[in-house]
Nucleic acid binder design. Structure first.
Length: 525
RNA sequence: GGGCCUGUAGCUCAGGGGUUAGAGCACCCGACUCAUAAUCGGAGCGUCGUAGGUUCAAAUCCUACCAGGCCUACCA
């Protein structure tokens, strides 16, 4: 029985179409999932859409559609986009699914029975136009609603509250005792400061009266209310692996990794563990938090119109190029800048000039000098031993980096192999050896060299597969190793020097990464 | 107000108590010509935000300050 591995993206809110942020989250998750599959783990990758809440019903109304039709439409766009991009998710969950509604109600009932949910009356400043209670920040100097310029009315309402504050100390202690529980570490500190802020942790309002909101899941213990936001959204991670009935649920759940953007740190870092605790379930392994992409030095936002569509990027540059840029350019956890110029520069340098050209020169030389047949390597000399040592070491490093959620560093490690191979070729100068056809020693050295570079390509392809799956299989195919990825196990198969069979027929092909053109400078408007 | 993060080469950023501070891009010189005018070698480039402190030793730890960003407030 192989080790289970469960990884999730957040469910994406269906108020916008997929942009660079959603895409980055999914690219990271897909890459990590692919790595664990290649490591022989029983991997399950969950993604989906969050479809409840008044924003959705309002957006639907604005478009003159039924809420369900609107949600179906946007959810469909997400799903088809992810399919187009070949993300390897195992389930696409929607919060409007009956199975999910059932799970949410099950958990709500459980927490309610445990005494951690209670009905409270509170009063506040309610704006009829907004259909919600306002905070001080929503008010202007004269105490009026900023949007409607009308004074709010004092209104009382009863709602259900999750008694989250009970778990403050428990959670703080857990975070302190488990370094890496929330990572990178800066975000764990951030959560600790939320727990210890002056106000402390407040209880969480989890309902809305039905007269104010209908588009939601009814509370099982009081059908005059629907569940509001976080219980609904977070519990998808349980529904996704068929809580509670699936026989594999427990094992999967004990190996879950959540990937999120830093904007939803609080719900995932605070609400979610406390909900799980209250429901009597174990909490997640790791919360992995990534930063934001700044586009043209600005935050991505709908109003600026600077959202980057993954499908447009794919059409313009090829999706693996875009994907590579996202993975390589952002240090996981930190913010990064996106521009098409930077993408073109990075892709040309790393993928065209280094990797692509390496593949091209290796396979073409083999074709030219040895009719494309992988030759006998013979005994290793110092240079080959250096390569072998690198091949022993790098896959382990990559493995550690992937498990520490540092894909950008793992990718840099893989490229150490590419650089070493380019350098090795220059040291050996096989094109010179090839001319010395009557020198047996040179011929032997040429064989050794050609074997070694192709073997390096094999290793590089295996390690690259989670990042650039299509490129990896293309290279392997050209090495006469089609289908190798289905059998490969990382890191050991990448470490095993000599995995490329002697006598294997190879074939040349078009450049993997033709040089990209710089985008035409756009007008400043 | 409270909290967090960032400030390192012209640009984008790694690194994070210990030999002369790193990479890529850009620029310069050289080598090579198998390859996508790719590759390899070499050179230059920095008071590691500022001022103090701890230490045998600080870009790295501590304090204060300056600058930018973020969270605190449901955009990945």
């Amino acid at each position: 029985m192989t080790k289970p591995f469960y990884i999730t993206t957040p469910i994406f809110y269906v108020n916008a179409e997929p942009h660079i942020g959603h895409t980055y989250t999914s690219v990271i998750t897909d890459t990590i999932a692919r790595y664990h599959r290649l490591a022989g783990e029983d991997t399950f990758y969950l993604t989906g859409t969050d479809e409840h809440g008044d924003k959705i019903s309002q957006a639907a109304e604005a478009k003159g559609q039924s809420t369900q039709a609107f949600a179906d439409h946007i959810a469909g766009i997400f799903r088809s986009t992810w399919d187009e991009l070949d993300f390897s998710y195992d389930r696409f969950i929607r919060t409007t699914e009956p199975a999910h509604i059932e799970t949410v109600q099950h958990i709500l009932q459980k927490v309610y029975d445990a005494g951690d949910i209670e009905l409270r009356e509170y009063s506040g400043q309610y704006c009829v136009g907004c259909e919600r209670f306002l905070t001080d920040r929503d008010l202007d100097e004269e105490g009026r609603c900023k949007d409607h310029e009308k004074p709010p009315e004092e209104r009382k309402e009863t709602n259900y509250f999750f008694l989250m504050s009970r778990y403050t100390d428990w959670l703080a202690e857990h975070i302190e005792k488990n370094p890496g529980f929330i990572r990178p570490a800066g975000y764990a500190k951030e959560v600790l400061s939320m727990l210890r802020s002056d106000n402390g942790l407040e209880d969480l309002c989890i309902s809305r009266p039905k007269e104010r909101l209908q588009w939601g899941i009814p509370l099982p213990f009081d059908t005059d209310y629907v569940c509001y936001v976080w219980f609904d959204a977070l519990i998808n991670y349980l529904t996704g692996i068929n809580y509670p009935d699936d026989p594999q649920f427990e094992e999967r759940w004990s190996n879950v990794e959540h990937i999120i953007g830093k904007d939803i740190l609080k719900p995932h870092g605070v609400f979610w563990p406390t909900i799980l605790k209250a429901a009597g379930l174990p909490i997640y392994q790791h919360l992995n938090v990534h930063g934001f992409w700044n586009v043209d030095n600005r935050k991505v936002s709908k109003s600026l119109g600077n959202m980057i569509s993954p499908l447009v990027m794919r059409e313009r540059y090829g999706f693996e190029c875009f994907r590579y840029f996202l993975l390589r350019e952002m240090s996981f956890g930190r913010d990064a800048s996106f521009s098409e110029e930077a993408l073109v520069t990075r892709v040309n340098a790393d993928l065209s000039k280094n990797l692509g050209n390496l593949e091209s020169r290796c396979i073409k030389m083999l074709g030219r000098f040895r009719e494309g047949i992988v030759p006998e390597p013979g005994a290793a000399t110092e240079l080959e031993k250096d390569l072998e040592a690198l091949v022993k070491r790098i896959p382990i490093t990559v493995d550690e980096q992937m498990r520490n959620m540092e894909p950008h560093r793992a990718l840099a490690s893989v490229f150490e192999l590419v650089d070493a191979t380019n350098k090795y070729i220059d040291q050996r100068a096989p094109w010179k050896l090839a001319k010395e056809t009557d020198n047996a020693e040179s011929m032997e050295l040429l064989d050794k060299t050609l074997y070694s570079v192709c073997e390096m390509l094999r290793v590089i392809s295996l390690l690259l597969a989670p990042f650039l799956p299509e490129t990896a299989s293309r290279i392997l195919e050209r090495l006469g190793l089609a289908g190798a990825l289905e059998k490969a196990v990382l890191p050991q198969d990448a470490q095993a020097w000599g995995g490329l069979p002697v006598g294997n027929p190879t074939q040349t092909g078009d450049p993997l990464f033709p040089r990209l053109e710089m985008p035409a400078a756009e007008d400043a408007n």
